[in-house]
């Protein structure tokens, strides 16, 4: 019984890791309307999208749709921590579109003169999660002050951690963490494995973990919102195509997919 529980959690943890590592993923190579552009074929244009890790699944889906609508365009999604992606772009990584999980990384890219006018296209909020069965009986944010509990949070140098700092300030809670992780995936893995009694992650990430974790509803969480900006790069190889991709994400189609994944409206 106990063993089965542990291995189910391990599977969940593995799938979280895999989801986190799935990028860069290339969208469907097969345009759904192959007859429209017979000669140019598929090798014509590649659109490189740098997206925050929490957007990986959504952007893969949107990339497929975009390719279907734009035969001859290959969309490559490179996902990772927003801060790390921003640093890569500033150091000259060839991106056409950048979508971040917070405004600070986008600000850094803007200061380097590489994007002009970012648009906020989605929001996310934090959630308190516990391993399946809630073994430590966590019911509120105040429980994170209990010394005897194992707590995993994001480090404040990454967006989910910065949002967490705001959340705890609003709720006047002083958590006693056992580990400050470098990204949300790592927090979720440790909760899913039952190695910690509670963790704070994005609402959208909870869905990835499936049955291995449970949500604990905390009213304060709704007030702390992370805003996700997107922008085409000023030096994009095909500015028109980059702009069209941004339009897809910010438009109705994008809205539907994002909402389905749990993101809020801007």
């Amino acid at each position: 019984m106990r063993r089965a529980g542990a291995s189910a959690a391990a599977m969940a943890a593995a799938s979280i890791l895999l989801a986190g590592c799935a990028a860069p993923s290339v969208g469907s190579p097969e345009p759904t309307t192959p007859t429209t552009t017979p000669a140019t074929g598929s090798a014509a244009t590649t659109l490189t999208v740098f997206a925050a890790a929490s957007l990986a699944t959504v952007f893969d889906e949107l990339a497929e749709r975009f390719e279907a609508e734009h035969p001859g365009v290959d969309v490559v999604v490179n996902s990772g921590g927003s801060g790390a992606l921003a640093e890569q772009i500033v150091q000259g990584a060839p991106a056409d579109v950048f979508a971040a999980a917070a405004e600070a990384p986008m600000q850094r890219v803007m200061e380097a003169g590489l994007v002009a006018a970012p648009v906020v296209f989605a929001t996310n909020s934090l959630e308190l999660v516990v391993p399946a069965g809630n073994p430590a009986g966590v019911t509120s944010l105040e429980d994170l002050e209990r010394e005897e509990l194992r707590i995993a949070l994001c480090d404040e140098s990454v967006p989910c951690g910065a949002a967490g700092v705001r959340l705890f300030a609003d709720a006047a809670v002083k958590p006693v963490p056992d580990t400050l992780e470098s990204d949300v995936t790592a927090v979720l893995t440790k909760v899913a494995l039952g190695e910690v009694d509670a963790g704070v992650v994005y609402r959208t990430d909870v869905r990835t973990a499936g049955d291995a974790v449970e949500r604990v509803v905390v009213p304060e969480a709704a007030s702390v919102v992370s805003r996700y900006p997107i922008a085409p790069m000023t030096d994009a190889a095909e500015p028109a195509i980059a702009a069209e991709f941004v339009q897809l994400v910010t438009g109705d189609a994008g809205r539907t997919v994002l909402e389905h994944a749990g993101f809020g409206a801007p």
């Binding site: 921590g81 927003s82 801060g83 790390a84 640093e87 600070a104 995993a152 480090d155 140098s157 990454v158 963490p177 056992d178 580990t179 400050l180 992780e181 470098s182 790592a186 893995t189 440790k190």
Partner: peptide, 27 residues
């Protein structure tokens, strides 16, 4: 280390982990 031991300053946050985290906010 970061997977098994986590990352808490003074307890488990070693130089490489500190360096990686710093890359997010202060290159």
């Amino acid at each position: 280390t970061i997977t098994f031991a986590g990352s808490l300053p003074g307890v488990t946050r070693t130089l490489p982990i500190a360096s990686y985290l710093a890359m997010q906010s202060d290159p």
